[in-house]
Simulated scan of single mutants.
Amino acid sequence: MIKYDLHSHTTYSDGQLSVEQLLHRAVEKNIDVFAITDHDTLSAIKPARQVIANDNLPLKLIAGVEVSTKWESFEIHIVGLNVDDENDALLSLLQAQQAKREDRALEIGRRLAKNGFEGIYDQAKTFAENAQITRAHFARALIERGVAKNFPGVFKKYLGRGKTGYGPSSWCDMQTAIAAIHQAGGVAVLAHPGRYQMSNKWLR
């Protein structure tokens, strides 16, 4: 039986494992086919291929990405699988997305600082290291400051929609993301559909 894992993140976005650590963990879990799908970036793909070759890992890598989009009033994530990681159309879209992520991170940092969390942007940036800053990095910074014990608690109090530290997003629309994934030869898949707070009508 072939074992697949088609949704994973590295430290190039909001994952906590490096490319090398993540790939070796996949092998330890007896995964055969593994997709790296970082948020709005393909930066991990080339290093992953190098690690697999250098360490002779028994793993088939699928180049992937998770693109944040807007649909109606919802933020919907679309996973692109088996994409060409050198496709100009997709890379151009992801570059624009990364600029939007930085703008959002600055706004989240501003809002949290205004509410007593001075220096929170810089603290989140230390967690992100050289990657783009995400809400997960702010969550880790807030947990370190003792305001909540875990991610759900932080998002419920500070980072969820309508909360003190929530920064509005300006992602591309869903159609644009799907079109770019298709142009890159990939398959577009709705990410974690069970997480969206929608009625069955909206889900359909």
Results as ranks from 00 to 15, higher is better:
residue 2 I to N: 11
residue 7 H to I: 05
residue 7 H to N: 13
residue 8 S to E: 03
residue 9 H to N: 01
residue 10 T to W: 05
residue 12 Y to K: 06
residue 13 S to P: 06
residue 18 S to N: 01
residue 19 V to K: 00
residue 21 Q to G: 04
residue 21 Q to H: 02
residue 27 V to Y: 06
residue 29 K to D: 07
residue 32 D to A: 12
residue 33 V to D: 04
residue 36 I to N: 10
residue 39 H to D: 04
residue 44 A to Q: 05
residue 44 A to V: 01
residue 44 A to R: 03
residue 46 K to R: 15
residue 46 K to T: 13
residue 47 P to M: 03
residue 55 D to G: 10
residue 56 N to G: 13
residue 58 P to L: 02
residue 59 L to H: 05
residue 59 L to Q: 01
residue 60 K to A: 12
residue 61 L to C: 05
residue 63 A to I: 08
residue 63 A to R: 08
residue 68 S to M: 07
residue 68 S to R: 07
residue 69 T to V: 11
residue 69 T to Q: 10
residue 69 T to R: 03
residue 69 T to C: 14
residue 71 W to P: 06
residue 72 E to Y: 09
residue 74 F to S: 12
residue 78 I to W: 00
residue 82 N to I: 00
residue 82 N to T: 08
residue 83 V to A: 03
residue 84 D to V: 06
residue 86 E to N: 14
residue 86 E to R: 14
residue 87 N to T: 08
residue 88 D to H: 14
residue 90 L to N: 05
residue 92 S to A: 14
residue 94 L to R: 04
residue 95 Q to T: 12
residue 95 Q to C: 09
residue 96 A to H: 08
residue 97 Q to D: 11
residue 102 E to D: 14
residue 103 D to H: 09
residue 104 R to S: 09
residue 105 A to T: 06
residue 109 G to D: 05
residue 109 G to R: 10
residue 110 R to T: 15
residue 111 R to P: 07
residue 112 L to T: 03
residue 112 L to H: 08
residue 115 N to M: 09
residue 116 G to Q: 10
residue 118 E to W: 10
residue 118 E to M: 08
residue 118 E to T: 12
residue 119 G to F: 08
residue 120 I to D: 01
residue 122 D to N: 14
residue 123 Q to A: 10
residue 127 F to D: 01
residue 127 F to N: 06
residue 128 A to L: 03
residue 130 N to L: 02
residue 130 N to M: 00
residue 131 A to C: 04
residue 131 A to V: 00
residue 132 Q to H: 15
residue 132 Q to C: 12
residue 136 A to H: 09
residue 137 H to K: 03
residue 138 F to H: 03
residue 141 A to F: 10
residue 141 A to C: 06
residue 142 L to I: 07
residue 143 I to S: 01
residue 144 E to C: 01
residue 144 E to G: 05
residue 148 A to L: 12
residue 149 K to L: 10
residue 151 F to Y: 14
residue 153 G to M: 00
residue 154 V to E: 00
residue 155 F to E: 06
residue 155 F to R: 02
residue 159 L to Q: 04
residue 162 G to I: 01
residue 163 K to Y: 04
residue 164 T to D: 11
residue 166 Y to G: 02
residue 166 Y to H: 13
residue 167 G to F: 02
residue 168 P to D: 09
residue 169 S to K: 15
residue 170 S to K: 15
residue 170 S to V: 11
residue 172 C to A: 12
residue 173 D to V: 09
residue 174 M to L: 15
residue 177 A to W: 03
residue 178 I to F: 10
residue 178 I to M: 13
residue 179 A to E: 11
residue 179 A to V: 07
residue 182 H to N: 12
residue 186 G to R: 03
residue 186 G to M: 01
residue 189 V to M: 04
residue 192 H to Y: 11
residue 192 H to T: 08
residue 194 G to T: 07
residue 196 Y to I: 06
residue 197 Q to G: 14
residue 197 Q to P: 11
residue 198 M to A: 12
residue 198 M to E: 02
residue 202 W to C: 11
residue 202 W to M: 15
residue 203 L to S: 10
residue 204 R to P: 11
